[in-house]
Amino acid sequence: MNLRALVSVTGKPGLFKLVGQNKGGFILETLDSAKIKSVVSLSSTKMATLEDITIYGEDEEIRLLNVFETIKEKGLTVDPKADGETLRNTFREIAPGHDESRVYSSDIKKIFTWYNIIKDLPLFEEEAPAPLV
């Protein structure tokens, strides 16, 4: 799974592909069919790549990519609009050991929404490039 160029932007719904950088900030493109490009300021916006996002665990943090891999391996179809208890039960199955007191239903809903956005992208099937040493 090669999701290196995909980012979440605080305060903006959905996911974005990082397509470049200029003096004013990062150039992002929406992942929907509209492919709208926008510039996000470096100083006023927080961004996180999907590769860097982790989920609170009871013993250790769980990488978001590992959660996505588990959903993919189990062939689960997840409806992010399901009720909170259904989402939590499904999340217990794919991310055992997550800290239930710090991972909220809204977080789980966002993770499932993101998965549904990226599952059909070509990047989802690509191997991640080797880390730079």
Results as ranks from 00 to 15, higher is better:
Val40Tyr: 11
Thr49Gly: 12
Leu42Asp: 01
Lys23Phe: 09
Gln21Tyr: 00
Leu50Gln: 02
Lys46Pro: 03
Val39Asn: 14
Val19Lys: 03
Gln21Phe: 00
Lys17Phe: 01
Lys35Tyr: 02
Glu29Gly: 01
Ser33Gln: 11
Gly14Trp: 05
Ser33Trp: 01
Ala34Asn: 11
Met47Trp: 04
Pro13Val: 05
Lys23Val: 11
Gly20Ala: 09
Ile36Lys: 15
Thr30Leu: 05
Leu18Ser: 02
Leu42Cys: 13
Leu18Thr: 08
Ser33Gly: 04
Met47Gly: 06
Leu50Tyr: 00
Ile27Gly: 02
Lys23Ser: 07
Val39Pro: 14
Lys17Val: 04
Gly24Asp: 09
Thr30Gly: 03
Leu28Ser: 00
Lys46Gly: 10
Lys12Trp: 10
Lys35Arg: 15
Leu42Val: 12
Val19Ile: 15
Val40Arg: 00
Lys17Asp: 03
Leu28Asp: 04
Phe16Gly: 05
Leu28Lys: 00
Phe26Ala: 05
Thr45Gly: 00
Gly24Thr: 08
Lys23Glu: 15
Phe26Glu: 08
Ser43Arg: 13
Lys37Glu: 15
Met47Gln: 11
Glu29Lys: 03
Gly24Val: 13
Lys46Cys: 12
Gly24Trp: 12
Lys35Leu: 06
Phe16Tyr: 15
Lys35Asn: 07
Gly14Phe: 07
Ser33Ala: 12
Thr45Cys: 04
Lys23Met: 04
Gly14Met: 07
Phe26Pro: 02
Asp32Ser: 10
Leu15Ala: 01
Lys46Tyr: 11
Met47Phe: 07
Leu28Thr: 01
Lys23Cys: 05
Phe16Glu: 08
Val19Leu: 09
Ser38Trp: 09
Lys46Met: 13
Ile27Cys: 05
Leu31Thr: 01
Leu31Phe: 08
Val40Met: 13
Gly25Met: 14
Asn22Gln: 08
Lys12Val: 07
Ile27Trp: 07
Gln21Ile: 12
Ser38Asp: 13
Thr45Val: 13
Phe26Val: 13
Val19Trp: 08
Ile36Cys: 11
Lys46Ala: 10
Leu15Asp: 03
Ser38Cys: 09
Leu28Glu: 07
Lys17Asn: 03
Ser44Cys: 14
Ser38Pro: 03
Thr30Pro: 05
Pro13Ile: 10
Lys46Gln: 15
Lys37Phe: 06
Ala48Ile: 08
Ser44Lys: 12
Ser44His: 13
Ala48Trp: 10
Leu31Pro: 06
Leu18Val: 06
Ala34His: 04
Ser43Glu: 07
Ile27Tyr: 09
Ser44Pro: 04
Phe16Asp: 08
Gly24Met: 12
Lys35Phe: 04
Gln21Leu: 04
Phe16Ser: 05
Thr49Tyr: 04
Asn22Ile: 11
Val40Asp: 03
Lys17Gln: 14
Leu31Val: 13
Ala48Leu: 11
Glu51Tyr: 00
Val40Phe: 10
Ile36Tyr: 10
Phe26Trp: 15
Asp32Val: 10
